[in-house]
Design a protein around this nucleic acid. Structure first.
Lengths: 248, 248
DNA sequence: TTATATAATATTGGTTAACTTTTAAAGAAC
DNA sequence: GTTCTTTAAAAGTTAACCAATATTATATAA
C-alpha cells in the first residue's frame, strides 16, 4: 500500500473541510494512485484524530467530486477517470488558501506569456480597451467602491489582446472562481491597510499597461510576473498567519 | 419558505444517493431558488425518513457539487450554481491545425513556468523519474516504435516535479487531447524524415533534462520554450503548406 | 488432496443519542 | 434608541451500536 501521512487536522473552517483537503492533496500528489484503496475509515479516524462521521462526510464530498468511489464491505478506491473530460477546479479548492496559491501559480504561468503575446500582437483598439479597464478600476478605487470586477476585466482585456482565444477562455474560467475567493482575502486585509494595497495593485497595473503599450514583451512578462507574484506572496503571508494563530 | 415534498426514500442504490438525487432535483426544478434556505437537517430527516448522518452526507455531496453552501448556526443555502462551468476544449478543436497551434501556445506558457518550478523544487526521485521517462522514449525510438505515450509521460513527470498538482492536472487534460491530434502530424511528417525529427525532439528533451537536473530554472524555461516553440513552428509550416495546396 | 460449505473478520452503510459551537433574534438594561 | 444578555435554533462533532457485503481462513466431505 502507498505510504501516507495525513496532517492531524486542526480546527479552522471545519474538520470535514480540512480532511477533504488533506485527502484530496494526497490523491493529487500521487500518494494514492488510480485504483488504489484508501485506508479504511477506522485508520483515517486514528491518523487524523477525528470521528467517523467526519471521515464519512469527507469521503462523501470526494465521491461527489468524482475523485473516489466506495464499495460496501470492501473499501474506498481512487477513481481512474479523474480528469480527462475537462479541466475543472472545485469551489472548495478555490476557497482554500493553500490551493488558491497553487492555482495562482498556474494562472501566473499563463498570464505571463499571455501578456508577452499581447505586447507583440495588440491592436490599437485592444490597447485602448486595456487602458479603459485600468481607468475604470482607478475610478472605483478612488470612490472607495469594490473593484474586483474591474480588476478581472483588466486581465480579460489583456487576454483578448493576445489574439489567442484560449487564453481568454482560460482566464474566464480561473477568474470566475477567483472572484468569490478574493472577497475573503480582501476582508482579511482590511485590517492592515486595504487602501494602500489597492494603490500598489493599481501601480502594478499601470506598469503592465505601459509595457504592453510600448510593445515590450520582456517588460510585460516581468511586470505581470511581479504583479501576480506579489499576490502569491500576500496569500502566503495569510496562510502563515493562519498557521501561527492555530498553533497558539 | 419554499414548498417542498421529498419522496420518502427507499433502499435502492444507497439512501444517501437517493436523498442527494431527490434534493438536487428539487433545487434544479426551482423549488428552491438561489439564496433560499433549505429546510433544517431535522426537518429533512422527518420528511425523508432517514437518519441525520444520511442527511449530512447528502448535504456534504451537494456542497462538493457547489450546489449548496452551509453556515453553522444558520442553515444550508442554495448557491448561484454558476460555478459548475469548466475549462473545456472539444475534440474538433484539438484536431484543427489552426486551433492546435493556439492550444500549443497556451500549453507552452504553462509548461515553461512548470519546468522552471520543477528545476527549483524537484526531489532526486522526481529527477530520476524524469530521466527514466526520457530513456524510455529513447528506447522506443531506437526500436522504431511509436513513442507518443512516452513523450507525454516525460512532460507529466516534469509536472509532478513542479510540486504543484494543478500543473499535473492541466497537462493531463491538455495532453490527452493532444495525443490523438498528434498522430495526424506524425503521419504528415513521415514524408520528410520522421526519424530526423524524432532525433531533434529527443535532443530537446535531453536539454530540458539537463536544465532541471542542474536546477537551472532559466535554462529550463529556455529549453522548454525552444522545445514547444519548435513544435509550434512545425505546426505552422504544415498549416501553411495546407493553405498553399488549397490555393492551387 | 481438492473442492465446497461455513465461520470469522474487515469494511462500508446506516441508526440513534448526546454534546459543542455558532449564529440570529428576542428581551432586558441603560 | 442603543447596547448588552439571554435563549433558542441550527449546523458541527462525537460515540456506540447494528446491518450489509466481500474477503479470508477454516473445517468438512468427497
Amino acid at each position: 500500500m502507498a505510504t501516507f501521512q495525513l496532517a492531524r487536522v486542526q480546527k479552522s473552517g471545519g474538520l470535514t473541510t480540512e480532511l477533504v483537503e488533506s485527502l484530496r492533496a494526497e490523491i493529487l500528489k500521487g500518494n494514492f494512485k488510480t485504483g488504489d484503496k484508501l485506508p479504511s475509515s477506522k485508520i483515517i479516524e486514528q491518523q487524523s484524530g477525528v470521528s467517523r462521521s467526519v471521515v464519512r462526510e469527507a469521503i462523501a464530498q470526494l465521491k461527489a467530486e468524482g475523485l473516489v468511489d466506495s464499495k460496501q464491505g470492501v473499501g474506498v478506491f481512487v477513481t481512474s477517470k479523474k480528469n480527462t473530460q475537462s479541466f475543472q477546479i472545485t469551489k472548495a479548492e478555490f476557497e482554500s488558501i493553500h490551493n488558491a496559491i497553487q492555482i495562482l501559480e498556474l494562472r501566473m504561468s499563463v498570464e505571463v506569456e499571455m501578456g508577452a503575446m499581447a505586447a507583440v500582437k495588440r491592436s490599437d483598439d485592444q490597447m485602448q480597451n486595456i487602458t479603459n479597464c485600468m481607468l475604470n478600476m482607478e475610478n472605483k478605487i478612488s470612490q472607495g467602491e469594490d473593484s474586483i470586477a474591474e480588476d478581472f476585466a483588466f486581465h480579460k482585456a489583456i487576454a483578448d489582446a493576445s489574439g489567442n482565444p484560449y487564453f481568454r477562455r482560460f482566464i474566464d474560467y480561473i477568474g470566475s472562481g477567483v472572484i468569490p475567493a478574493r472577497e475573503m482575502i480582501t476582508n482579511y486585509e482590511n485590517g492592515f491597510g486595504s487602501d494602500k494595497l489597492l494603490a500598489v495593485i493599481q501601480e502594478e497595473h499601470r506598469q503592465i499597461c505601459r509595457a504592453i503599450e510600448s510593445q515590450d514583451s520582456d517588460l510585460a512578462r516581468a511586470s505581470i510576473k511581479a504583479h501576480l507574484g506579489n499576490s502569491i506572496k500576500r496569500h502566503s503571508q495569510i496562510e502563515e498567519s493562519f498557521n501561527i494563530n492555530q498553533e497558539q
